[in-house]
Simulated assay, not measured.
Amino acid sequence: MQQFHINPLEMVRSFWRNRALIGASIKREIFGRYRGSFLGILWSFFNPLLMLTIYTFVFGTVLKARWGVEGGSSVEFALVLFAGLMIFNLFSESINRAPNLIVSNPNYVKKVVYPLEILPHIVIGSAIFHLAISVGVWLLAYMVLYGVPPATVAYLPLILLPFLIFILGLSWMLASLGVYLRDVSQFIGIATTAMMFLSPVFYPASALPEGYRLLLYLNPLTPTIEYARDVLYWGKQPDFSQLTIYLAAAALFAWLGFVWFQKTRKGFADVL
């Protein structure tokens, strides 16, 4: 019987060992999404550009929304809002697909010797590509409206690292649960929508009463959304001590997700 390792280092070893397969699969995933469309992969650029334009018009011109900063403009609201949505979309794109990763690939389980643990890497890699395009659109809009972005933009990959590790661990858990409980995918669709409104995406955390802010900060999306806005728009450096704690907690969570996946994968073929 095949042995599945649960050593924490195996998470890294598996990624490195299968890096070529992961890279090729991510490329196929990205181009496959736009196959047959007239504009092809250019849609990955036009989609965030169109959404940013819509947000600017609706929240700025129609609703005349401001971010709660004295003297703030509608354009500022749109850019700050879009910065939060980019983080949420990264999370949503990865997590919503996680419960069906194994179910939708039964041949990988039954007929092919395939490293199933890399499937979340592929989905997250595709989501990172779309995030990178969105960030490029955001930076382009910032330069057109304000000029050179703050130097703190360089910290964005650093603050995304623990968030991506957390998503990876959660994806492993959901991919396994999705095999045994088919209702998980339905629940996750509702949960991610709820998390969008329970995160500081459309409003600043300071808009909530003091007693509710603790609940907001228990949401794993909250710190990354706020850090992203700090480095992209407000020009603030992240709190590196908090970021280190977040990274350690995310790594532990990812390992627990990996252990769960490895322990339960033995029954995938029987259920499918």
Rank of each mutant, 00 (worst) to 15 (best):
P8N: 09
P8W: 09
P8D: 10
P8R: 09
E10A: 06
E10P: 00
R13E: 06
S14W: 02
S14M: 05
F15W: 04
W16P: 00
R17S: 07
K27R: 15
I30S: 08
G32H: 04
Y34F: 15
G36V: 09
G36R: 02
F38K: 06
L39R: 00
G40S: 02
S44C: 08
F45D: 07
N47F: 08
N47D: 05
L50N: 01
M51E: 10
M51H: 11
L63A: 12
K64F: 04
A65F: 11
W67G: 14
G68P: 08
G68F: 04
G71T: 14
G71Y: 12
G71S: 13
L79E: 04
L79P: 04
F82G: 05
F82N: 09
G84V: 13
I87H: 10
I87A: 09
F88D: 03
F88M: 02
F88C: 05
R97Y: 10
A98S: 11
N100L: 06
I102Y: 09
N107P: 01
V109P: 10
K110E: 07
K111I: 08
V113T: 12
P115L: 04
E117N: 05
L119P: 00
P120T: 02
P120Q: 00
H121K: 00
H121V: 00
I122A: 01
V123I: 12
G125L: 04
S126G: 11
A127E: 00
I128V: 14
F129Y: 14
L131T: 05
A132I: 10
I133M: 14
G136T: 07
W138L: 14
W138I: 08
M143H: 09
M143T: 14
Y146G: 04
P149Q: 08
A151I: 11
T152S: 12
V153S: 00
A154E: 03
P157L: 10
I159R: 06
I159D: 07
L161Y: 09
L164A: 07
F166K: 06
M173W: 08
M173H: 03
L174P: 04
A175N: 01
S176T: 11
S176R: 01
Y180R: 12
R182Q: 10
R182S: 13
R182V: 07
D183A: 00
D183H: 00
S185Q: 10
I188H: 01
I190Q: 07
I190G: 01
T193L: 15
M195C: 08
L198P: 03
P200Q: 11
Y203W: 13
E210A: 15
Y212A: 07
R213T: 04
L214D: 05
L215M: 06
Y217R: 14
N219D: 06
N219T: 09
N219L: 08
E226R: 15
Y227E: 15
A228C: 10
R229W: 12
D230K: 14
D230M: 11
Y233H: 09
W234V: 02
Q237E: 13
Q237A: 14
D239Q: 15
D239P: 13
F240N: 02
Q242F: 13
L243W: 09
T244Q: 13
L252I: 15
L252M: 15
A254F: 04
W255P: 11
G257L: 00
F258A: 01
V259Q: 03
W260F: 14
F261S: 03
F268I: 10
A269D: 11
A269H: 08
V271Q: 12
